[in-house]
Amino acid sequence: MPITTEDVLRWITQAAQVFHEQRDYLTQLDAPIGDADHGVNMDRGFRAVLDKLPSLSGMDIGSILKTVGTTLVSTVGGASGPLYGTAFLRAGMVTAGKHELDEADVIEMLQAALDGIKARGKAHTGEKTMVDALEPALAAARKAQEQHESLAVLLRRAAEAAEEGMKATIPMLATKGRASYLGERSIGHQDPGATSSWLLLKTLAEVAD
C-alpha cells in the first residue's frame, strides 16, 4: 500500500506527539554533550507544525512537507531548525504535486532529505550527528526495495537501521556541532539529533504499518 496524504498528516501529528512525550529525554541527551535544548527545540517546532495542520488539509504531499519545513525553519532555531527544515523542504520538492508515495518515491524523499541536511550542515557519516541515523536508514530502505519488500517492511527496516545508527553514535568522537567542542569527552554519549531522526522514521514506519 502506498503512503497517502492522510498517512503523511498522521505521521506529522504523531511525530508531534512523540516529540512532546520525548521532550525531556531528548533534552537530557543534549545535556552532557550539548546545551540541553534539543527536546525543547523539536517540541516547539512540531507544536507549531500542529497549529498549521488545519491549513494543510487538501494539500498535496509536497506542499505539506514544504510547509512543515518552513514552519520548522521559522520556529526551531538552533542547529536542528535549519537542518530538519531543509530536510522537509527538500523532501517536499521531490514529492511536489503527489498524493501518494510508492517505494521509489519514499526512497527519493529520504535521499533528498538526507542530501539537504548534509549540504546545509556540511556533514558526513561518522561525525556523531543525525546523518548517522539517516544514512544507514536510507541504505536499508534501498536494500529492502531491491528485495522487493513492501513499503511497510521497507520503512520498518529503515527505522531499525536508524536505531542502530543512533546507537552507533555512542562510541563516536563528535566532529560536528556543539558536541565537537568536548573532544574526547563526547565519546560515550548518544547523539540527540540522531535520536530525533530515529523517532521520525520510527513514527513513519508505524503510520505505514
Binding site: 545535556a31 552532557p32 546545551d35 540541553a36 535544548d37 525543547v40 556543539r178 567542542y181 568536548l182 573532544g183
Partner: peptide, 28 residues
C-alpha cells in the same frame, strides 16, 4: 535551563570545569 529545570551538569563541591562554553556546555 528554565525549560529543563535541572542543572545541565553536576559539579562536586571541590570541582570546576575549565574551558566551558556559554550555553552550559561542559568544558574540556
Amino acid at each position: 535551563v528554565p525549560a529543563k529545570g535541572t542543572p545541565t551538569f553536576d559539579l562536586g563541591e571541590d570541582e570546576m570545569e575549565i574551558g566551558i562554553g556559554i550555553h552550559g556546555e561542559p568544558g574540556r
